[in-house]
Design a protein around this nucleic acid. Structure first.
Length: 609
RNA sequence: GGGGGCGUAGCUCAGUUGGUUAGAGCGCUGGCCUGUCACGUCAGAGGCCGCGGGUUCAAGUCCCGUCGCUCCCGCCA
């Protein structure tokens, strides 16, 4: 503010509605130490308390609130004009800081010890009555908030989120700059890729019938920058994926994208871990663990059923397939996988609660939910009768069953069992209040499979992306047993959310070709889609790898926001529209003609204008 | 593509078994008020019950469709 002020003083603007008034303080700045100072504040009217005599106004700016007082005795003219002031009017006031009278301090306000006695004020703008109050405590429907996003962002909590977001981005930049990373911008108009998410396409006018794609990530460009010899690259960059939205997923989102040369996974993980630790320390003053916990993908799936375990609370899954293989309950005996989830103290769950949980697991494809309550003298359960004494004691031992427990079982295809019980675990953690407040549990998940089988397409697809390097000695497995091949990939998980992921890449042509082979991408197709990468790999590509963080999701966790939309200034709705600008919209017929594009007749097209 | 929730005053919501003129709090408008701080107080305005059909003597309420917001499954290398 100070530098701006100096600049303006050198070049005063005669028509400026501010005149020679210049803001001297924010609305969250003045304290008892400032008593007696002449100040100038500018901001919005939060509350007006017009007593007929005295008028109190809480003036709000980005930083906070300050009470200003209009008195008929000390400034009769200013007071007389102040009756017209309404919510969200924009005011500039000049006045004198004074302590509030004895017993009138407001300890709930940062500036509650003082007030500003107004000597003069300017109405900088009026405001229509806003469609909702600019306060945190009101709960407004999301479509109204999004339609009037500029008002929603005035609310203190939202403003705080964007303050945090800005500080976080700066912290990351400082950290990476300190390690000699170069910030490089990569194209927004690029080539559509066959693998991965659906692309957003942009028609080319100059090359009719051809399309750019908006980048799903700068993956290939950052690898090429390593071939360029940049050695260390980063970018805080928008990425685009045309897939359905979720509370933590938007079609355009921001990544902290990082790539390094001459490194192995340990170095990338060490750098990334320090970055996140520094970020939490600098922006939230939170000390994350000196060393993040690690877990292999196999262990995560075995113990938690998900590849992004929430380690803020206990409860683990236990494989009991072998014990129930011969039992009389057919759905257990013939299942590919049977797992149990022991919940200490869960014996008190009511029938209604169990019914709710049964409905819950059906979301993930479960047919039902088997359970056993462990009581002093008996197992209360619809399924206990199917187990022999030997099976019972084996289950009791394997699951470490204690009186007062409930144990849930899920049997069937492995994917379903893991997904249903893994999500049931999260659900129970929430319902039973097992998740502690204010705890951050970071976790590296490593040793991911390189490929996974796509049953629909009947082929192997890259689990991470097709440029990920297999682990030492696993290249050969791609030809013999592709499902067994492990990747040099790693994900950073925070409180059950994946916040980052990366890998060491294939930096030789031979490795990359083998990978394409395994994915069923033949030489001609590889040449067509990725020829530029394959070329580049032949010109001295250094060993390299990197990582990318989802900035929005990270900020959401740091801010304690429930939705990613609360940390994105102008987000899309679940139908991928913007309620404020009403995008997307039909375009003029002329625009389509220029692009050589026809749309279905049912689709609306504006008449030429 | 599929499943769940929501849609009534500017906002947040209530509205019984289908039955009189659709209510509350906040906000808004006007009056009064010199120490309030979500000021108080008196008065007032404000409704396409999302939209379209249907059933019925009668629909905010029941049925069908549709639109919007939202949570989730699929999808998201």
């Amino acid at each position: 503010m100070d530098e701006l002020q100096t600049a303006e003083e050198q070049h005063p603007r005669a028509t400026d509605p501010l005149g020679d008034w210049r803001r001297t303080h924010t609305c969250c700045q003045l304290t008892a130490a400032d008593v007696g100072k002449s100040v100038c504040l500018m901001g919005w009217v939060q509350f007006r308390r017009d007593h007929g005599g005295l008028i109190f106004i809480d003036l709000r700016d980005r930083q906070g609130l300050t009470q200003v007082v209009f008195s008929p005795e000390t400034a009769p003219d200013a007071h007389a004009r102040a009756h017209v002031v309404r919510s969200e009017y924009v005011l500039g006031i000049t006045g004198v800081v004074r302590p509030r009278p004895e017993g009138m301090a407001n300890s709930a306000m940062v500036t509650g010890e003082i007030e500003v006695e107004v000597t003069d004020w300017k109405l900088l703008n009026t405001s229509k009555t806003p469609p909702f109050a600019i306060e945190d405590r009101v709960d407004i429907s999301e479509n109204l908030r999004l339609k009037y996003r500029y008002l929603d962002l005035r609310r203190p909590r939202m403003a705080q989120n964007f303050l945090l977001r800005s500080k976080a981005a700066q912290s990351v930049r400082r950290y990476l700059d300190g390690l000699d990373f170069l910030e490089v911008e990569t194209p927004m108009l690029t080539r559509s890729t066959p693998e991965g998410a659906r692309d957003f396409l942009v028609p080319s006018r100059v090359n009719q019938g051809e399309f750019f794609a908006l980048p799903q990530s700068p993956q290939l460009f950052k690898q090429l920058l390593m071939v360029s010899g940049l050695e260390r690259y980063y970018q805080i960059v928008k990425c685009f994926r045309d897939e359905d939205l979720r509370a933590d997923r938007q079609p355009e989102f921001t990544q902290i994208d990082i790539e390094m040369s001459f490194v192995d996974e340990e170095q990338v993980m060490h750098m990334a871990e320090n970055m996140v630790r520094t970020l939490f320390k600098e922006t939230l003053d939170i000390d994350l663990p000196a060393s993040f916990q690690r877990m292999t993908y196999d262990t995560a799936m075995a113990d938690y059923g998900l590849d992004k375990p929430d380690l803020r609370f206990g409860l683990k899954l236990t494989d009991v397939s072998d014990i129930v293989r011969g039992c009389e309950l057919r759905v257990f005996a013939k299942a590919e996988l049977v797992k149990g989830l022991r919940v200490p103290g869960g014996e008190s769950l009511s029938r209604k609660e169990i019914d709710d949980l049964t409905e819950f697991v059906k979301i993930y494809g479960a047919q039902g939910l088997a359970w056993i309550k462990i009581r002093q003298d008996e197992w209360q359960s619809p399924i206990a009768k199917f187990f022999s004494d030997a099976e019972r004691s084996a289950l009791a031992e394997r699951l470490n069953l204690q009186v007062g427990d409930i144990v849930f079982f899920q049997a069937g295809a492995s994917d379903m069992v893991n997904s249903a019980l893994g999500n049931l675990r999260l659900q129970l953690g929430e319902r039973m209040g097992l998740i502690p407040e204010g705890v951050y549990a970071p976790l590296w998940v490593t040793d991911f499979p390189l490929l996974e089988y796509d049953a629909e397409a009947k082929r192997w697809v890259a689990k991470h992306h097709p440029f990920t390097s297999p682990q030492d000695g696993h290249l050969e497995l791609l030809k013999t047993d592709p499902g067994k091949a492990l990747a040099r990939a790693y994900d950073l998980v925070l409180n059950g959310s994946e916040i980052g992921g990366g890998s060491i890449r294939n930096h030789t042509l031979e490795k990359q070709r083998t990978m394409f082979d395994a994915l069923g991408i033949d030489e001609a197709e590889a040449e067509d889609k990725f020829g530029f990468l394959l070329n580049a790999l032949q010109f001295g590509a250094p060993p390299h790898g990197g990582i990318a963080f989802g900035l929005d999701r990270l900020i959401m966790l740091m801010a304690g926001a429930k939705s990613i939309r609360d940390v994105i200034a102008f987000p899309k709705t679940q139908k991928a529209t913007c309620l404020m600008t009403e995008a997307p919209s039909p375009v003029a017929a002329k625009q389509l003609r220029e692009l050589g594009i026809k749309v279905r007749e049912s689709a609306a097209v504006k008449e030429p204008n």
